[in-house]
Simulated assay, not measured.
Amino acid sequence: MLNKTNIFLVRHGQTTWNAEGRLQGQKNSVLTETGRHQAAQAKMSLEQYEIHKAFVSPLQRAQDTSKIILEDRNVDVVIVESLKEINLGPWEGKTKMETQQSHPEQYQQFWTYPGQFRLPGAESFEQLKSRVVAALDDIFLKEKGKNILVVSHWMVIKTAFAHYTATPLNDLANIPDPKNGAFIVLEKSNGEELSKIRVL
């Protein structure tokens, strides 16, 4: 057992909707060839680490990314509903321009003041943060002393980063967007608070 717990929090590879500039939310679109290459790059970056277990969003793009990363490993994979991307309701599948035209006030909130974002049929960032942090804290609690792979999504990772760095949700725009296939490492010494975040 390690004297610390590492969560390697990976964003899925590029999808067709990513390439088209469409908001995905909880709808599915398939990995592009670029996305599969990005997942393979993440696999290479993680080869130096033993991975003891994986927790993955149920959305297909995250599952497909995890399969590429883990294809040469015998690792238990747990599908976790709480690791889904933010539910964007009527915006899913739409471009930024389309969402700005249909909901100008909520568009401004989403990109500038996400802590105030409210859209009928969609999640708030507070709701997203609540479920994501609960899932990650549960992993830290139950998987102490292990290296854990988590494959998830854009706003999930940004919101988790904000929580663990005590960054207000309204300052999400100041957190760099995680690139497709890139990951951050959440590191916690056993029995202590989060000790380090590394962006890789």
Rank of each mutant, 00 (worst) to 15 (best):
S45E: 11
L46K: 08
Q48W: 05
Y49N: 11
E50L: 09
E50R: 15
I51L: 15
I51S: 00
H52M: 11
H52W: 15
K53Q: 15
K53R: 13
A54K: 02
A54N: 10
A54V: 10
F55K: 06
S57F: 07
S57H: 07
P58Y: 09
P58I: 10
L59K: 10
Q60V: 13
A62R: 05
D64W: 09
S66Y: 00
S66R: 02
K67S: 10
K67R: 14
K67I: 00
K67G: 02
L70H: 06
L70Q: 00
D72R: 13
R73M: 02
R73K: 11
R73Y: 13
N74K: 14
N74D: 13
V75G: 08
V75F: 09
V75I: 15
D76V: 15
V80Y: 01
E81I: 08
E81K: 15
K84W: 01
E85F: 03
E85T: 04
E85R: 00
E85I: 03
I86A: 04
N87C: 00
N87A: 11
L88W: 02
L88K: 01
L88S: 01
G89R: 03
G89L: 06
G89W: 00
G93D: 09
G93C: 03
K94Q: 08
T95K: 10
K96A: 12
K96W: 12
K96R: 15
M97I: 09
M97Y: 07
E98H: 09
T99Q: 03
T99M: 13
Q100E: 14
Q101G: 00
S102A: 13
S102C: 05
H103I: 00
H103N: 15
E105I: 15
Q106K: 12
Q106T: 04
Q106A: 15
Y107N: 08
Q108M: 12
Q108K: 13
Q108P: 00
F110P: 02
F110C: 02
F110H: 03
W111T: 04
W111S: 03
G115M: 06
G115A: 10
Q116E: 15
Q116H: 15
Q116G: 01
Q116D: 14
R118M: 08
R118Y: 11
L119C: 09
P120K: 09
P120Y: 02
G121H: 07
G121T: 02
G121Y: 07
A122R: 06
A122G: 06
A122C: 10
E123V: 06
S124R: 05
F125L: 02
F125P: 01
Q127P: 04
Q127N: 06
L128H: 01
K129A: 11
S130N: 14
S130M: 14
A134G: 03
A134W: 05
A134D: 09
A135Q: 07
A135M: 05
L136G: 04
I139Y: 06
I139C: 03
F140C: 03
L141H: 11
E143K: 13
G145R: 10
G145N: 13
G145E: 14
K146Y: 12
N147I: 08
N147M: 13
I148G: 03
L149R: 04
V151Y: 02
S152P: 08
S152Y: 06
H153R: 06
H153W: 07
W154I: 11
W154C: 13
M155Q: 14
M155P: 02
V156P: 05
I157L: 09
K158W: 01
K158A: 10
K158T: 08
K158P: 03
T159F: 02
T159K: 01
A160R: 01
A162Q: 04
H163N: 11
